[in-house]
C-alpha cells in the first residue's frame, strides 16, 4: 500500500501536488466568503473545455522534437477564418460549428505545413522562431481582416462597407452550441457536457495516434534524430507531421473556444494564445522535450481552475483589482519555471 502511494506520488510529481493543495485551500477560503463555490467550479469546467484543445496542441509538437508550439496563432488564424466563413453565411447551431471546422481544418493543414517547412530550417530554435512567427502572423492578418471580402453586415464595420469589426458576437449563430449540448446541473454545478465530450474525443484520438506506428516514429525523431536516421526514418517529414497536427489542433481549438466564449476577437486577439497553453502543459508535468496527453489534461485542469478560483478569491480578500496582475505573474512564472527544466516527467 505504502509503495503504491509512493508510486502514485512520483507519477504525479511534487509541483502538481503543491498546486493541488493550494487549489484546495483556495476553494475552502472561497467557501468562507460570499462566493458560490459551485458557480466557480462551473466556470472552471467551461474554461477547461474551452482551453483544453490548445493545451493538447502542445503535445505533438513537443513529441516531434520541435518544443513547445509558441506559434499557436498560426493555427488559431485558420480557425478564425473557419468561424468567419460560418458566420458570413449565418449558419446556426451545429451546422455552423461543423462548417467552421470543415473550413478551419484544411486551412490549418496548409498553414501548419508551411510553418513546419520554416521550423525544419531552424531546428533547435523552434520555440524562439515560433514565438515571432506567431506575432508576425497575427500582425499580418490584421491587414487581411481589413481587406477580407466578407459582406455580412453583422461582421463588418457599419461605415465604409469593408473591414471586419474587432469583436464579433456568436450569440446569434453558433455560440454555445457545444456547451449547451446535453448540459445538466448537479448540486448547483453546471456541466457543459458537449464541450467536455468533444475535448475528450480529441484527447483520445491524439492518444491513439501517439501509440500508432507513425506516432512512435514521430516520438523517436523528437527524442533522438540520429537514431531515427539510422532506423531509416525521414526526420523532416515526421517533424512536419507533429507541427501540422499541433497547428490543426489549434485551429479546432479556436472554433471550440469561440463558440464557448461567445465572441470572436479579431486583430490582436490571438496574439497571446500560446502562453497560457504553454504554461498549462508545463504545469501538467511536460518538459520541452517530452509530453504526454495526460500532462496536457492534468495541466489544463490545474491551470484553468487555479485562474478561475484565484481571481475572485483574491478580489474578495484584497482591496482593488490585482487579480489580472496575479494571473500574468502565475502564467508567465510557470513558463519561466518550466523552461529552466531540461528533463520532464518525474523530475519536473
Amino acid at each position: 500500500m505504502k509503495e503504491r502511494l509512493i508510486k502514485i506520488y512520483h507519477g504525479f510529481g511534487l509541483p502538481r501536488l503543491i498546486i493541488s493543495v493550494f487549489l484546495l485551500a483556495l476553494i475552502i477560503v472561497a467557501a468562507g466568503t460570499e462566493l458560490s463555490v459551485p458557480g466557480l467550479l462551473s466556470d472552471a469546467l467551461v474554461r477547461i473545455g474551452q482551453n483544453g484543445i490548445y493545451v493538447l496542441a502542445m503535445v505533438p509538437s513537443i513529441q516531434a522534437g520541435a518544443g513547445l508550439n509558441f506559434g499557436l496563432p498560426v493555427g488559431v488564424i485558420a480557425g478564425m477564418v473557419g468561424v468567419l466563413v460560418a458566420m458570413e453565411n449565418s449558419l446556426l447551431g451545429f451546422g455552423g460549428f461543423v462548417v467552421a471546422l470543415l473550413v478551419a481544418i484544411p486551412l490549418g493543414i496548409i498553414a501548419g505545413y508551411l510553418y513546419s517547412l520554416l521550423l525544419n530550417r531552424v531546428a533547435g530554435q523552434e520555440m524562439m522562431v515560433g514565438t515571432y512567427v506567431g506575432f508576425s502572423v497575427v500582425a499580418g492578418m490584421c491587414i487581411f481582416w481589413l481587406m477580407a471580402p466578407f459582406k455580412n453586415p453583422a461582421l463588418i464595420w457599419p461605415v465604409g462597407g469593408q473591414g471586419l469589426r474587432v469583436t464579433l458576437t456568436l450569440a446569434d449563430t453558433f455560440g454555445g452550441t457545444l456547451n449547451e449540448f446535453l448540459k445538466f446541473e448537479i448540486f448547483g454545478l453546471t456541466v457543459p457536457t458537449g464541450l467536455l465530450l468533444f475535448y475528450a474525443l480529441l484527447a483520445f484520438l491524439l492518444w491513439l495516434f501517439l501509440r500508432s506506428k507513425p506516432g512512435v516514429a514521430m516520438e523517436v525523431v523528437g527524442r533522438n534524430p540520429r537514431f531515427a536516421v539510422a532506423s531509416g526514418l525521414n526526420i523532416n517529414a515526421y517533424r512536419s507531421v507533429g507541427i501540422v497536427l499541433s497547428t490543426v489542433l489549434a485551429s479546432i481549438g479556436y472554433v471550440v473556444y469561440a463558440q464557448s466564449f461567445g465572441f470572436a476577437q479579431l486583430y490582436n486577439g490571438p496574439l497571446m494564445t500560446a502562453f497560457p497553453a504553454v504554461a498549462a502543459v508545463l504545469i501538467g508535468g511536460a518538459s520541452t522535450r517530452e509530453a504526454k496527453v495526460l500532462n496536457a489534461i492534468i495541466g489544463v485542469v490545474l491551470f484553468q481552475t487555479l485562474l478561475t478560483v484565484a481571481m475572485p478569491v483574491t478580489n474578495q480578500l484584497i482591496e482593488g483589482n490585482i487579480s489580472e496582475i496575479a494571473r500574468v505573474i502565475v502564467s508567465n512564472g510557470m513558463i519561466l519555471y518550466a523552461l529552466t527544466r531540461v528533463t520532464g516527467g518525474e523530475q519536473a
Binding site: 527524442r223 533522438n224 537514431f227 539510422a230 531509416g232
Partner: peptide, 28 residues
C-alpha cells in the same frame, strides 16, 4: 548496424529497453 556512437546514434537514451529493442523493426 550497431553504431560506434552508442549513446548518440545507437540508442534513444530516454526511452525504455523494450522500445529501444523494437523501434527499428517496428518502423522498417
Amino acid at each position: 548496424f550497431v553504431s560506434e556512437d552508442r549513446r548518440g546514434v545507437g540508442l534513444v537514451l530516454e526511452d525504455s529497453i523494450a522500445n529501444n529493442i523494437v523501434l527499428t523493426s517496428m518502423q522498417t
